[in-house]
């Protein structure tokens, strides 16, 4: 069985299933982003603030994603850690137009990276600098420097600007995280 599994893996015919966590402050566009990734028939029209979490499934390049779309509201952020252990990838969504709360983002990110379930693992993290279409949004370079992403040297990470409403930039990000996770699973 194990041999068969390996064989299937090499040939790339095995259907892979991965769990990713979608994190970020409230109103950064997590649920909208997930909604955009879902297949046409599952899409919903209106996105409302998540309370707790939503579990969504979507497929990307033969990989079955199970996304734990967590609520970003201040009082529910403590609940993120319950899901750290089982996830194989993290998508961190940042509202790049919200310059005021970027410091909060940094705080939350630091807490995340220092969590015992995360700190030792080589888990890929994808940053979406969302809402890039807004006029006074920060550039990806700026965000990298403000959040101090250069410090992360033990985990693969990537940042790309995105617009979850139109889907711009999502392609690039999804491509990257699929590859990064497949890389690790091999």
């Amino acid at each position: 069985m194990k041999l068969f599994g390996k064989l299937a893996n090499i040939l790339g015919i095995k259907k892979k299933e991965v769990k990713v966590l979608i994190l970020g402050l409230n109103n950064s566009g997590k649920s909208t982003l997930v909604n955009h990734l879902k297949s046409e028939e599952d899409k919903v029209q209106t996105i409302i603030p998540t309370v707790g979490l939503n579990i969504e499934k979507f497929k990307y390049h033969n990989v079955q994603f199970t996304a734990f779309d967590m609520s970003g509201h201040g009082k529910y952020r403590d609940l993120w850690e319950h899901y750290y252990r089982e996830c194989e990838g993290i998508i961190f969504v940042i509202d790049s137009s919200d310059t005021l709360r970027i410091a909060v983002v940094r705080d939350e990110l630091d807490t995340l990276l220092q969590h015992p379930d995360i700190v030792t693992r080589k888990i890929p993290i994808l940053f979406f600098a969302n809402k890039m279409d807004l006029r006074d949004s920060l550039s990806t370079f700026k965000i990298v420097s403000i959040l101090g992403l250069e410090r992360i040297d033990d985990k693969p990470w990537h940042i790309c600007a995105s617009n979850a409403l139109t889907g711009d930039g999502l392609q690039e990000g999804s491509e990257w995280i699929t590859q990064a996770i497949c890389e690790l699973l091999k």
Binding site: G52, N54, I55, Y76, D78
Partner: peptide, 12 residues
């Protein structure tokens, strides 16, 4: 504790 975590899943 924190049972409200499933609120959105249930409303869905």
């Amino acid at each position: 504790e924190d049972v409200i975590i499933v609120t959105s899943s249930l409303t869905k």
